[in-house]
Amino acid sequence: MKQTQGNNGNKKFGMVINLDLCTGCGSCMVACMAENNVPFKEDETDKLDSITWMRVYKLKNGKSWPNADICYLPRPCMHCGGHGDHGHSPCVSVCPAVATDYSMATGIVSQIYTRCFGCRYCMAACPYHVRYFNWWDPVWPEGMERFLNPDVSVRMRGVVEKCSFCFHRYQLAMNKAFLEGRRVLEEDEYQSACTQACPAGAITFGDLNNPEHAVHQLVQPDPKHAGRPRNPKAFRLLERLETNPKVYYVSSRKWVRQSGDNYLKKEKQKI
């Protein structure tokens, strides 16, 4: 019964974010908001109540002036494959109503707003704070609803939303390919809005299962360890929890790589 995302024709879309290149500019955040009809309020400074499918975190090395260092880390949904990549992402396995699901064909964790009844169990399950609840009715200032994107449905109050890896773009690309009589997408035919916008070219998106794709080459996922990166400069957030994310980070700075996971005091001393 167990399924895995091996190389059986299934895609495993993923993202590699180069933190050496990332400037922390926030374009990815805004590109995502603009693409995905993310609502906004007059005051968005309470970050525990501010919907940002993509959020850029500021990491600090904890040292004092002038040895202080900072690094920016963009955080979309990790589209976790769960233990052994069997599709039991932390969030998917807990949703009582199958309002969020794991696609074996793409590796994408979906979110169906009209199915979600807002119990927020998935939010409790996700350690990345990727999931956002619509505490408020989405309201656009008069006239501004004109820029809403018809490819993505607007969410009503009381449901959870999160980064979809711009799944609608996948659907559009597949439709187009289908009309042209193709079954397979080229690497550049399906790219997320944040990848496309990033002015620093810090984000790479593609099929981790496809050795031709840049994402695969950048991290060299290890199939024996559920896709753990073999590139020593690459890492995933909270690798030790075995959530098995499909978002990888690359940094040449050791303290940055170490900021991606928790270590015991004695382990830290050894590193």
Partner: peptide, 24 residues
């Protein structure tokens, strides 16, 4: 309706990239 602003691919200045303000 204009629904989304994106960076123009191939444009010599920004080749597809775009800043938060441009996107807004």
């Amino acid at each position: 309706r204009a629904v989304k602003i994106e960076g123009m691919d191939g444009y010599p200045v920004n080749d597809g990239g775009i800043c938060p303000l441009g996107l807004s």
